[in-house]
């Protein structure tokens, strides 16, 4: 059984069906890139994986445990599956290190000192040790996003969901965030990334998934998806990306 198994996942907002039956298996330590046009369901799929959105049909299981449906301890699930958002979503009333320490202290029962040590170590690793006592609004977008990644990592999750984490960044700040994701991939973190950074997806992914209007149209290793896509729609999408100079 795969580490993460999604079967027949459907998600409906009112009368609009955002996800129309997704089936996907992901092994531990795999990096999966979700690509597709805006509104294709990438973000919704990630939010369903973290139970931020209730699902209408289908099943999600992680590490052999079904984590969808009624009666699931969603808070425990979310501790195991971290998430990073497009708009960083740091807590503005807390300093950088407090942002990172909140989860380990309040949810994992760590002492303040242990949580701070961990926060400092992780911040050093992303070259932000000197910003520990700053507040989010004093940091650049790239720095904020690096803190957000550290905040998720500090909970020592078994998988990480990255929801277009570079889409709100100025171009020159994208690299500093992606290099962290690259390091996490090398360390063996299981990751889902919804992304428009095709070059990066090609480099870092084990599997690329192309979503089109709520259906999983095509999946495969990056060489195949980017080099020789089977579906005409995938081909067309990638052609548009290339024309926009993004691949």
């Amino acid at each position: 059984m795969a580490f993460i198994e999604i079967s027949g996942l459907r998600k409906v907002y009112g009368t609009h069906e955002v996800l129309k039956g997704i089936d996907l298996q992901v092994e531990r330590h795999q990096v999966v890139s979700l690509i597709g046009a805006s509104g294709s369901g990438k973000s919704t799929l990630l939010r369903c994986l973290n139970a931020l959105e209730p699902i209408n049909a289908g099943q999600i299981s992680i590490d052999g445990d079904v984590v969808s449906g009624p009666g699931v301890d969603q808070n425990r699930l979310r501790r195991k599956v971290g998430m990073v958002f497009q708009a960083f979503n740091l807590f503005p009333h807390m300093s950088v290190e407090e942002n990172i320490m909140a989860g380990p202290m309040r949810l994992l029962g760590e002492t303040r000192d242990a949580a701070r040590d961990q926060a400092r170590t992780l911040l050093d690793r992303v070259q932000l040790g000197h910003r520990a006592e700053y507040y989010p609004d004093q940091l650049s977008g790239g720095q904020q996003q690096r803190v957000a990644i550290v905040r998720a990592i500090a909970m020592r999750p078994e998988a990480l969901l990255l929801d277009e984490i570079t889409s709100a960044l100025d171009p020159e700040l994208v690299a500093e965030v992606l290099s962290i994701v690259r390091n996490l991939a090398q360390d063996g973190m299981t990751m889902f990334l919804a992304t428009h950074e095709m070059q990066f997806a090609r480099e870092v992914s084990d599997m690329v998934v192309f979503l089109e209007q709520g259906t999983l149209l095509e999946r495969g290793p990056p060489e195949q998806i980017f080099g020789d896509p089977r579906e005409p729609r995938t081909r067309q999408f990638l052609k548009q990306i290339i024309e926009a100079g993004r691949l």
């Binding site: 939010r47 931020l52 989860g103 949810l107 905040r151 909970m155």
Partner: peptide, 13 residues
Amino acid sequence: PSQWSAARSLGFS
């Protein structure tokens, strides 16, 4: 609402 998402995604009730 993104503040709710952020906190809930970390596992806070």
